[in-house]
Nucleic acid binder design. Structure first.
Lengths: 236, 236
DNA sequence: CGTGGTTTGTACGGTGCCCCACGAAAAAAC
DNA sequence: GTTTTTTCGTGGGGCACCGTACAAACCACG
């Protein structure tokens, strides 16, 4: 089942910041692709072949430990990009990149991207600032994962995903949420059940609806707002 | 009390990678400063006035949450630099930077540093790669903090600090280790006591000595080696 | 030599989450 | 319509770590 999405706003907010000329030159080398849930865009330690600028949906950045422990360390939507490593001159991905919520993105091959990076000062500046945002959010996530309880972290994730979906409705099972939050599936069921009882969300077999996003913000840890602030402060 | 250190090797490993000319130009604008334990070099959200290239000792990068929860998200020594944000064109520090282990560093004011960054391709390339290393290590730390027990994380920290001190002996109380690891002081006492009983370390009133670093590696989580591998892979 | 501050040892009850496991209910496949 | 798969609910025992608190050991200093 697909969620209704405002296709009219199919833009990427990073690209939107570029001067018209720079953006048009970049888009000329890009193709619009569909991102489908569970698609693997990058694998840890493997070469980055394409860069993505999502215009809808969201992609998880997932850290993998020796062993089978996994955990989400970042979430990318139309406010960001996939392939920050290339901005730093590194061609290998440090994390697994997994499509969480289906959508579309501009796709550019790595070589063309690096060419554009060379000749556009605005592109470099914008993307380097975005890299900094990712670093800040990563630091925040370290502390968040350590100190905050599952229910608050789940609420934060729901809000972040809602923002990127541009919709109160999106898809994710308890199982996949367990991987994202780095907890047991049963732990997610418990936390999600609590949020549902408070009438903040409603869900059924992977279909999640945010009923009261203000209430959800109250349940979420302050990391949600902190990340938004970081983005606004650094990018402006 | 000071630890004996090999002053002969007072170099920074990032700077050592630069072509002679670029390095000399950078050092011409730098001054050598002493870093003393508990010195605050950066504060969260505040302007970065100087950049540091440590040549000894180590500096903690510490994330602060709303509330009083704190946690180390990075450790910088002569293998790295302080002020990565400036490499990305951002002049504000995302974390608190606290001197853990006394030592020396090359200090450069922000403006001069940015000038050098403009005109040296090698400097940009080297430091951007280092930024990538920091991102990788941060992602690793998110998962490590979530999944690994205190004793393993403590062992990892001891090894990392030992590398940066270039000595088996260095200073840190259980109290400060508690902040670094994001646990209670009593938790550190327990874990440290266990490591001491295994004859891997010895400590007394903040003076720590690593007795068996191979044994310590076995007690530490794989994140220690993983971070070393990342550094070697990305920087070479 | 006593006093005060710092550092470390330890104990107790509590909690958040783990591991394991089973069952139920809804959707999908046949 | 029956079977298989996916998703979700729940329970019991256990463990790592928490919050708190108190005491002992050690060092610095008057």
């Amino acid at each position: 089942m697909k969620t209704a999405r405002r296709k009219a706003e199919a833009t990427n907010r990073l690209l939107a910041r570029l001067p018209d000329l720079d953006r048009r030159r970049l888009l000329a080398k890009s193709t619009s692709v569909q991102l489908r849930t569970t698609d693997v865009l990058y694998e840890r330690g493997k070469r980055i072949r394409e860069v993505y600028f999502p215009t809808g949906g969201s992609i998880s950045l997932i850290a993998t430990l020796h062993g089978h422990d996994r955990l989400q360390v970042g979430l990318v939507g139309d406010e960001g990009m996939l392939g920050t490593s290339l901005v730093l001159g590194v061609t290998v991905s440090p994390t697994l990149a997994l499509v969480q919520d289906c959508g579309t993105a501009w796709q550019i091959d790595a070589a063309s991207f690096r060419e554009e990076l060379e000749c556009s000062v605005a592109l470099r500046g914008c993307l380097q600032r975005y890299v900094h945002v990712v670093m800040c959010q990563s630091a925040q996530t370290v502390a968040c994962t350590r100190f905050h309880v599952v229910e608050a972290r789940l609420a934060r994730w729901l809000l972040m995903t809602r923002d990127r979906a541009h919709s109160d409705h999106f898809h994710s099972t308890h199982e996949s949420l367990a991987t994202i939050l780095g907890v047991r599936r049963a732990g997610v069921t418990h936390a999600a059940g609590s949020l549902q009882q408070q009438r903040l969300i409603r869900y059924s077999r992977g279909e999640i609806t945010v009923l009261d996003h203000h209430g959800l913000e109250a349940s979420a840890c302050a990391c949600y707002v902190a990340n938004q602030d970081t983005y606004a402060r650094v990018m402006n």
